[in-house]
């Protein structure tokens, strides 16, 4: 009996602007703890839209999202914020660090928000995560001064700070060169192997997808095909 951490139950989503479009058309799947899953599909097939629904940021959909068995439908905004803070780590295509803060503070902020550990402990944990990703020496730099690859690694460290149940990524390597893409992918793989971290990554890089445990293929807002991959 496997342990389901995230489940999409018949998710349907429309966009109304400029005309009513069904962008997600009944998506069903579930992810177990420790899974390293990729979602692939043509540009515009609804991958990002799905990910925003799953991440609880988008609440305008039909169907249900279950995180750790709890329905996210009809939940209030502060509750969803808390879920994101505690259970989900997010990595975006464009690195989205807060330029007003140092690298260390960027990583610490979700941890300070969670308020489970003291500030000192959060700082120690943040250093720890940065070390794992090999960028501890950047800790005190201003976030705006990093290269793209470095920023993305900081974003991953930030996603890890609260030991989330699942990490979601929307084309995290989409904006990186070959070398940095590989570096970031290696990090994901390392997280999967060594920490047994659950991850759901949207990508349209077939090489990337090929190295994950499971590939979900989408077309026109629907899952058309799933492959188990034993390579990873």
């Amino acid at each position: 009996m496997e342990n389901t951490i995230l489940a999409a139950v018949n998710i349907v989503k429309y966009f109304y602007d400029p005309v009513k479009v069904k962008v997600l058309n009944g998506v069903n799947f579930s992810i177990h703890r420790g899974d390293f899953v990729s979602i692939v599909g043509k540009s515009g097939c609804g991958k990002s839209s799905l990910l925003y629904v799953l991440s609880t940021m988008d609440t305008d959909y039909e169907g249900d999202v279950l995180i750790d068995g709890i329905s996210m439908q009809q939940k209030k905004e502060p509750y969803l914020a808390k879920i994101r803070n505690e259970k989900i780590g997010f990595v975006f295509q464009f690195h989205y660090l807060l330029n007003e803060f140092t690298v260390l503070k960027n990583v610490m902020l979700p941890g300070l928000k969670l308020h489970k550990y003291s500030e000192k402990e959060v700082e120690a944990r943040a250093y720890d995560k940065l070390k794992t990703l090999g960028i501890a020496d950047l800790a005190l730099k201003n976030a705006a001064r990093l290269s793209g690859g470095e920023k993305q690694r900081v974003a991953i460290a930030r996603a890890l700070i609260n030991d989330p149940d699942i990490i979601m990524g929307d084309e995290p390597t989409g904006n990186l060169d070959k070398k940095n893409s590989e570096l970031v992918f290696d990090i994901f793989k390392q997280l999967s192997h060594e920490l047994n971290q659950t991850m759901l990554i949207v990508t349209h890089d077939p090489d990337f997808a090929a190295k994950t445990n499971r590939i979900i293929r989408m077309e026109d807002g629907k899952i058309v095909n799933e492959e188990k991959n034993l390579v990873g």
């Binding site: 905004e77 502060p78 914020a81 979700p110």
Partner: peptide
Amino acid sequence: MDTIAILKATGFAGRD
């Protein structure tokens, strides 16, 4: 805007 969006994405509520 970006800062606000990131704060929200990483778990800060609207009231924060």
